[in-house]
Structures are given as structure tokens and as C-alpha cells.
Design a protein around this nucleic acid. Structure first.
Lengths: 139, 139
DNA sequence: ATCCAATAAGTGCATACGCACATATCAGAT
DNA sequence: ATCTGATATGTGCGTATGCACTTATTGGAT
């Protein structure tokens, strides 16, 4: 019995993520936000003013990628940046417009979340979430 | 008790995928391949000549995204395309160079796969793979 | 006061991803 | 032979992602 190596963990992660992102993006489309942008706004709404680095850490994202993800959000006036405590850092926070857009998008996100759980199973979804959180902690 | 909605399934998927992709890409770096490119070559090596559409389906990827993912691989001579049975379709297959690169990258991929399993747990990794496969099937 | 390692962020470059739309081809109905 | 709906692919556009490298500040050591 020649042990075949297990299927690529990274590949199946990416495949599941592509499918799931499409589902969420379809639901969020009327809000004009993508899932990634919704996540940024949600973090800023909950965790108050953040530096780029802190936001990146919260999103488990590269700092420079976060920086660029912010560009369209700042361009559209959803996120504003004031001076940080340093001359180095910026303090990012939602604008009033940003709060409105987030509020408008939230029911759509809830729909997407519900659609995922209906299709996949609520229990299983909870377990999957725990498993993925462990991936972030350990990898 | 106000039921807070569960954490965003899509967000945690994306976060885990970002981390994991970085791990695999670091391991694969000496081969000059990214994990996504390695996946393309691996599918073509196993499933013989494929059309763009069939490759996209195998990778659970949008057709047009697949098309563009192929560009650097074709530019670098790792994937070749002959005429398909139709005048419409192309038949994609590995070039000899592509087979060499894939063979060279495979031990690096095995390292990455092993690193993931060591950090995350082999059993848990297998379960996670099954869960993610179900996501692809159901979402 | 000056210098330097550490910190926060931005740039250049390349790949990754998908939607809306356009183009080419084919297979079957007429 | 022709028309038409289906099929296979490509393009324009915009966002997503991260590495290597650079710039600006800062806090402390001298």
C-alpha cells in the first residue's frame, strides 16, 4: 500500500474560500461592498480608531495589502484617517457615511451568513469556524 | 439573551486561507511557483489535456480567472495549448519544462503539507479537508 | 546634540480573482 | 444554405494579496 499524500490543504482552503466569497459577494452586491470591504468596516466599527498595522493584524492580512484595500474605501469616503499619536501612524476610523453603508449592508450580510448555514448546516458551520480559527492560531 | 450572530464564515475562511497560502508559498518559493500555479500544473499532470473550462471547474475557479492564471505559465513555457477538438476550445497540457518544474516543486510542496500537518495536527487536517470539501459541494 | 536601531507606513511589481460584456464557433432546426 | 440558441473563450475593469524595498519618525544610547 503506497500511502498517497493527503489532498493539498491549501488548495482545498482556497477552493472553499472562492466559492464562499462568491456567495457573500452576491448577497452584498446591492450595498456596493465586497465581503473584504465589509470586514474592514465591521472591524473599524467595533474596534474604534486603529492604525493600519493594527487593522492588518485584526484581519490576518499583510500590512501592505491592507493599506491598498483601504484606498477605495477612503476614496469613497467610507473610512477616514486622522493623525495618530505618532507622526508615523495614521488613525483609521469610519466616517458617518461609512457607518451608514455598514448599517445598510448588515442585513445583506446576515442573509449571506444564513444562506451559508442553511446550505452547510449550522452545527457544522460552527465547527468549521472553530477549526479555521485554529488554523489562524497555529499556522 | 440576545443571540449574537456567529462570526463571519467567509471572513474566517479568508483569514485561514491567507495564512496558509503564505506558508505554502514560502516553501514553494525556491521552485519559482506559487501554490496556485503548482495546483494548475498538478491538475494538468494528472488529468491530461484539458480545456480552459474543464481546468477551471477542476480548480473551483472562475473561468476567466483561470484563463489569466494560465498566462504567466504559458509565457514561461510550462503549459502549452494545442487546438481542441473544436475550433472554440484549446487543449492545455504540460510542456516537458512544465513537468520538470512540477517534479522539482513536489518535494517542496510535500514539505509545506508536512509543516501544515505538524502545526495543525494530521487528524485535524484530514477532518478539515473533509469539511472544506463539503463546503465546495454544498455552497 | 547626534547617531542608530526599531517602528509605521508607502511604492513597485507581479500574481489572483470574478463580473459584465464581447467574440468565435458549433449543432440542430428550418 | 441559413438562422439561432448554446458553447468556449477572451477583454476591460476593479479589487485582493503579498514580497522586497524605501521613506519617515521615534526613542534611547552616546
Amino acid at each position: 500500500m503506497t500511502d498517497r499524500p493527503s489532498p493539498c490543504h491549501c488548495r482545498v482552503l482556497r477552493e472553499a474560500t472562492r466559492r464562499t466569497t462568491q456567495l457573500y459577494d452576491r448577497h452584498l452586491a446591492p450595498s456596493g461592498l465586497r465581503l473584504g470591504q465589509y470586514s474592514v468596516l465591521a472591524v473599524l466599527a467595533r474596534a474604534g480608531p486603529l492604525t493600519v498595522g493594527a487593522l492588518a493584524e485584526a484581519l490576518v492580512m499583510d500590512r501592505t495589502a491592507t493599506s491598498r484595500t483601504l484606498l477605495p474605501l477612503q476614496r469613497d469616503g467610507l473610512v477616514g484617517s486622522g493623525p495618530g499619536r505618532d507622526g508615523r501612524s495614521r488613525a483609521l476610523e469610519l466616517t458617518p457615511t461609512g457607518r451608514e453603508r455598514l448599517a445598510a449592508a448588515r442585513p445583506l450580510w446576515l442573509d449571506a451568513q444564513a444562506a451559508f448555514e442553511t446550505a452547510y448546516g449550522s452545527e457544522e458551520a460552527r465547527d468549521l469556524g472553530r477549526s479555521l480559527t485554529r488554523v489562524v492560531e497555529r499556522i
